[in-house]
Measured scan of single mutants.
Amino acid sequence: TGEEYIAVGDFTAQQVGDLTFKKGEILLAIEKKPDGWWIAKDAKGNEGLVPRTYLEPYS
């Protein structure tokens, strides 16, 4: 299990392996990579890379 984050903006996948999401979606951070791209999972179970700058902790 990971930590929940809320998307603060829309993001469209730029390449294969990225995860597209919309502002307000809750994402589960699976792995926090030091380069600023995290592996996350959305509510539908889709998994991919997301930019850290689009996420804020969800409580």
Rank of each mutant, 00 (worst) to 15 (best):
L27I: 07
P51F: 12
W38S: 00
Y54H: 14
D18E: 15
W37K: 07
K23V: 08
G36I: 04
K33P: 07
Y58F: 11
E47I: 15
E56H: 10
T53H: 14
I39W: 14
N46S: 07
K23W: 06
W38D: 00
F11H: 06
I6S: 03
L19T: 01
V50T: 03
E3G: 10
W37H: 05
I6K: 07
K23N: 05
F11K: 03
W38G: 01
E3F: 11
T1A: 13
K32I: 08
D42N: 14
I30C: 06
A13N: 04
T53Y: 11
T53E: 15
F11V: 05
T1Q: 13
L55N: 01
I26W: 07
A29E: 02
A43R: 12
L55R: 00
G9M: 15
Y54L: 15
Q14W: 11
G48M: 02
D35P: 02
V16T: 11
S59A: 12
K23C: 11
D35T: 08
L27V: 05
V16M: 11
T1Y: 13
L49T: 13
R52M: 15
P34G: 11
G2F: 15
T20R: 04
L28M: 11
D10R: 03
P34H: 10
Q15I: 09
Y54E: 06
D35Y: 07
E25W: 10
E56K: 13
Q15F: 10
G45V: 00
G45P: 00
A29W: 03
I39E: 02
F21I: 10
T1W: 14
G9Y: 15
G36P: 03
A7M: 02
Y58I: 10
I30S: 03
L27N: 00
N46I: 08
Y58D: 03
S59W: 12
K32E: 07
V16G: 09
L28P: 00
L49N: 10
G48S: 01
G17W: 06
I39M: 11
V16C: 12
V8A: 06
G2P: 13
I26L: 08
E31Y: 12
S59N: 14
V8W: 05
P34W: 09
G9A: 15
V8D: 01
K33I: 06
N46D: 08
D35M: 05
G48A: 02
F11R: 07
G45D: 05
K22F: 09
K32P: 05
V16K: 13
L28K: 09
V50I: 05
A43W: 10
K44Q: 13
E3T: 10
E3Q: 13
Y58V: 11
I30P: 00
D18K: 12
A29Y: 04
V50N: 01
K23L: 07
K23S: 07
W38R: 00
K22P: 02
A29H: 02
G48T: 01
A43H: 10
T1H: 14
T12A: 09
A43F: 09
P57H: 08
V8E: 02
T12W: 11
I30W: 05
T1K: 13
G2R: 13
E25V: 06
G48P: 00
E31W: 12
A7I: 02
L19V: 02
D18L: 14
A40M: 15
V16N: 10
G24Q: 02
N46Q: 10
N46L: 08
G36D: 06
K23G: 04
D35G: 14
A7C: 09
A40G: 04
V16Y: 11
W38H: 01
L28Y: 14
E47M: 15
E25M: 09
P51E: 07
E56F: 09
N46W: 05
I6G: 01
L55T: 01
Q15A: 12
I30N: 02
I26G: 02
E4A: 14
R52C: 15
T12E: 11
K23D: 03
V16H: 11
Q14H: 10
G9R: 15
G45R: 02
Y58T: 08
Y5M: 06
E47K: 12
L19G: 01
V50G: 02
L55C: 04
I6T: 05
D18C: 15
T1L: 13
P34V: 10
Y58P: 04
K22Y: 10
P57A: 09
W38K: 00
D35A: 05
G45W: 02
A7K: 01
Q14E: 10
A7R: 01
A29L: 15
L49M: 11
D18H: 15
W38I: 07
G45Y: 02
V8Y: 04
Y54W: 09
E47C: 14
Y54T: 05
A13Y: 03
N46T: 08
R52V: 13
G24L: 03
Y58K: 08
D35Q: 05
G48I: 03
A29N: 02
T53W: 15
E25A: 12
P34L: 11
D10E: 06
G36S: 04
T20K: 04
Y54C: 14
E4C: 15
P34Q: 11
R52S: 15
L27D: 00
G24T: 02
E31D: 12
D42E: 01
T1V: 14
E56Y: 10
G2K: 12
E3A: 10
A43C: 11
A40E: 00
L27H: 00
K41N: 03
P57I: 09
D10C: 09
I39F: 11
I30H: 03
E4N: 09
Q14M: 12
E3I: 11
G36A: 04
G2I: 13
D35I: 03
A40Y: 04
G24D: 05
E56D: 07
L49H: 09
T53K: 14
A7D: 00
V8R: 09
D18F: 15
T1P: 12
I39K: 09
Y54R: 08
G17C: 07
A13Q: 05
E4R: 15
E3L: 11
I30Q: 04
A7W: 01
G45K: 03
T1N: 12
W37P: 03
Q14S: 11
Q14A: 10
W38N: 00
R52D: 10
F21H: 00
D18M: 15
D18P: 03
E4F: 15
L19M: 06
P51Y: 13
L19Y: 01
Y58C: 09
D18R: 14
A29V: 15
K33Y: 11
S59F: 13
V8K: 10
K32R: 09
I39A: 05
D18Q: 15
I30L: 12
T1R: 14
Y5K: 00
A7E: 00
G17N: 06
I26H: 06
L55G: 00
G2M: 13
P51H: 14
Q15W: 08
T20D: 07
G45A: 03
Q15Y: 10
D42W: 02
V50E: 01
T1E: 13
L19P: 00
W37R: 08
F11N: 02
Q15V: 09
Y5W: 11
S59Y: 13
Y54G: 04
L27G: 00
S59M: 12
E3S: 11
E25N: 08
I6W: 06
P34D: 13
L19F: 03
Q15E: 10
P57D: 05
R52E: 14
S59I: 14
Y54F: 12
Y5T: 00
T20A: 10
L27S: 00
G17H: 06
T53F: 11
Q15D: 09
G17Y: 06
A13W: 04
W37I: 07
V50P: 02
G48N: 01
K44A: 13
T20Y: 04
V16A: 13
W37F: 08
L49A: 09
S59R: 12
F21V: 08
A43L: 11
L27M: 07
P57S: 07
G9F: 15
G48R: 01
I6H: 03
E4G: 07
Y5I: 01
T20E: 07
E3D: 12
W38P: 00
K23P: 02
L19D: 00
V50H: 01
V16E: 14
G24A: 03
D35L: 05
P51I: 05
K32L: 07
F21W: 02
N46E: 08
V16L: 11
A29C: 14
V8C: 12
Y58L: 11
G24R: 03
D35C: 11
A7G: 04
I39S: 05
A40R: 01
D35H: 07
T12C: 12
W37C: 08
Y58E: 04
A7Y: 02
D18S: 12
D10F: 05
V16W: 10
T20S: 15
